[in-house]
Design a protein around this nucleic acid. Sequence first.
DNA 1: CGGTACATGTAATCTGTTACATGATTCA
DNA 2: TGAATCATGTAACAGATTACATGTACCG
Lengths: 180, 180
Amino acid sequence: MSLSHAILTALIDENLTGYELAKQFDVSLGFFWQASHQQIYRELKQLHEQDYVAVEEVPQLGKPDKRVYSLTAAGQQMLEAWILAPTRSRNPKDELFIKLYNVGLVPIASIIAAIDQRQDEHRRKLALYRKIESRSYADPASLSDRKKGIYLSLLAGIRQEETGLGWCIDARKLLASVDT
Amino acid sequence: MSLSHAILTALIDENLTGYELAKQFDVSLGFFWQASHQQIYRELKQLHEQDYVAVEEVPQLGKPDKRVYSLTAAGQQMLEAWILAPTRSRNPKDELFIKLYNVGLVPIASIIAAIDQRQDEHRRKLALYRKIESRSYADPASLSDRKKGIYLSLLAGIRQEETGLGWCIDARKLLASVDT
DNA sequence: CGGTACATGTAATCTGTTACATGATTCA
DNA sequence: TGAATCATGTAACAGATTACATGTACCG
């Protein structure tokens, strides 16, 4: 599965602890692939058993010892092979649409409330992504190759949020004609 | 979880067998919530234990007996309560972006191939959604309330695919400036 | 004194995927 | 004859979520 590949990807540039990886998965890569710390620790254990990552134990004063993970040659090879393989497309799952199939069953206000909630989420994410864009990716053509790839992910995020936001507005308009 | 709610939603208008439900989950509702027949049979068993659905066994000639499921009053109440509750937003997971974070690690042609594959998927889905739109939802304002909800789901699908398709085209352009 | 950050994990449960299993009918 | 459709399921495994568990340090 792909959590392992996401972890290996994060380890290309820097060596990280499980804790630091979990934080990475709350931002950046985490915009497109989320994982909890429990998943990450479990996955790191398995990656280590297969020698795709190496560990260095770093004792610390007053804190638990750190376990700093780094990518091995085998790990990088595995990652490269996975990139060449066909990409599995995610099956979409969105509760909001199940709710929309039930217009007429419940007061329309409750459906509209769900759309408003979604609209807020889109707005928050869009603001965040645009901030990152203007800070680090203002001139895409002059970016390094690696940054171009990351920029394209960000661009996909921006457009998805814009599309979602626009849809929320139009959905509200159409639902205004529904009573109850 | 929401598979149960998707099943109850499908049972509002018609009584269905597990097999028929599985087919529904390949189209319509399935555009936004996918499930395999194994999941559906398991879920139906649980829904029945909780009395959210009722079963009628229908003997058939030459075929295995059918088990036709219908929504109970308790099931409908449960569904209504769920619609009123806050909508959990799905954590996004898309392998393609993990691959994009690795531009520079592998020949760029392999990343472009992944984008082309995605572009095809968008095109296929878009063509399908537009066909459904022109057949059944050409005049949104005149639809029944229930159909309006379903139409909005379809509209979201159409826009998502359009956005994805546009992104693929732009991604290809930017990656044209990357060598190797 | 309470909350947040640092830092690592286990256990139980819930979902999802893949493979296996059966058997009739219809269409090309 | 072989593939597709109808119709139901079990079993094993993989992946994700939620709750539990521990303990220090620093900031206000």
